[in-house]
C-alpha cells in the first residue's frame, strides 16, 4: 500500500486520462502498472509523472508497461529511435537478417503485431519486415 501512496499521482493520472485495462498490483515490493493509454501523449505524460516521483527511475520499485491503444493494424507509426536507424528484420528476433532500415522520424505502417515486442511494419518505400515495437509510436 505504501507504494500506491508514493505513486498516487501517477495512478490517479492513469485513471483520469482514460487509460483502459488499468491494473495496479504490488508484488514483492514492486508496483506493477499495466494499461493501455488512449494516445502516445498520455503514455508520455504518465512516464513524465513517474520520472518526477522517482527521478531517473532509479529506485526500481515500479515496472510500468503502458501500451498505446491507437497502435492497431493500419496505423501510422513514427520511428522514435534515439538517433540510429531502426532495423527491419525478416523475422521477429535480433538473430533475424536485416531486410531494411527506417530512419529516425520516418513514418511507417503497422501491418500486425507478432508480439508485444515485435511488430510487422511496412515503410513508405515498400520494405516489409519486423521491427522492435519500443521504437514505434502511433502518430496522432
Amino acid at each position: 500500500m505504501a507504494l500506491q501512496e508514493k505513486y498516487k499521482e501517477l495512478i490517479d493520472a492513469a485513471q483520469s486520462s482514460g487509460t483502459t485495462n488499468l491494473q495496479v498490483n504490488e508484488q514483492d515490493g514492486v508496483l506493477h502498472i499495466d494499461g493501455e493509454a488512449p494516445t502516445g501523449a498520455v503514455k508520455d505524460q504518465l512516464w513524465d509523472i513517474y520520472g518526477k516521483i522517482d527521478p531517473n527511475f532509479l529506485t526500481g520499485d515500479v515496472v510500468m508497461n503502458i501500451n498505446v491503444a491507437t497502435a492497431v493494424a493500419g496505423a501510422k507509426l513514427e520511428v522514435i529511435t534515439d538517433s540510429t536507424n531502426l532495423n527491419i528484420r525478416k523475422g521477429p528476433g535480433t538473430d533475424q537478417p536485416i531486410v531494411g532500415k527506417a530512419a529516425k522520424g520516418e513514418t511507417v505502417s503497422l501491418i500486425s503485431k507478432q508480439s508485444d515486442q515485435w511488430w510487422l511494419i511496412r515503410t513508405d518505400a515498400g520494405e516489409e519486415g519486423y521491427a522492435y515495437a519500443q521504437y514505434l509510436q502511433p502518430v496522432e
Binding site: 527511475f57 532509479l58 526500481g60 508497461n65 508485444d116 515495437a133 519500443q134
Partner: peptide
C-alpha cells in the same frame, strides 16, 4: 536510460534494478 527503462518494463520483469 528512460527509453531503455520503457523497453525493459514492457518485457514484464519482476523488477528493474538500476543500482
Amino acid at each position: 536510460w528512460k527509453t531503455l527503462k520503457m523497453a525493459l518494463d514492457a518485457l514484464k520483469p519482476k523488477r528493474v534494478d538500476a543500482s
